[in-house]
Simulated assay, not measured.
Amino acid sequence: MTNKELYEAVFMDALDLVDRKALQGLEFQGHPNWDSVGHMQLISALEDAFDITIDPDDMIGLASYEKGQEIVRRYGIEL
């Protein structure tokens, strides 16, 4: 599994999504499962999957699927 596939899988699993199409344009609070609790579950899942510790500022900044890709790249993960 590539890092990009893993990134997608983390979002799908953490937010309990069933369709990959839902990822494009997905934003915080733009889906019922991406509320504040879902956000912390997503952060935890990303940290576990990529063996990183996400800075609090980046936690706050992770406001969309696309922004999350930028943030993960900051930690040396190639997607």
Results as ranks from 00 to 15, higher is better:
E5Y: 06
E5M: 11
Y7C: 03
E8S: 03
E8R: 02
V10E: 03
F11E: 01
D13I: 11
D16L: 08
L17I: 02
L17A: 08
R20D: 02
K21I: 06
A22R: 00
L23I: 03
L26W: 06
L26G: 00
E27C: 08
F28Q: 02
H31S: 07
P32C: 00
N33F: 09
N33H: 15
G38A: 05
G38V: 02
G38M: 10
H39S: 11
M40K: 05
M40E: 11
L42Y: 06
D48R: 14
A49G: 03
A49T: 06
A49Y: 00
T53L: 12
I54Q: 02
D55I: 12
D55C: 10
P56D: 14
D57F: 14
D57K: 14
D57Y: 13
D57S: 15
G61P: 07
L62R: 03
S64L: 04
S64G: 11
Y65I: 04
Y65F: 15
K67R: 14
K67Y: 00
K67P: 02
Q69F: 07
E70S: 12
V72P: 07
V72G: 05
V72I: 15
R73V: 08
R73E: 15
R74C: 13
R74H: 14
Y75D: 11
G76K: 06
G76L: 06
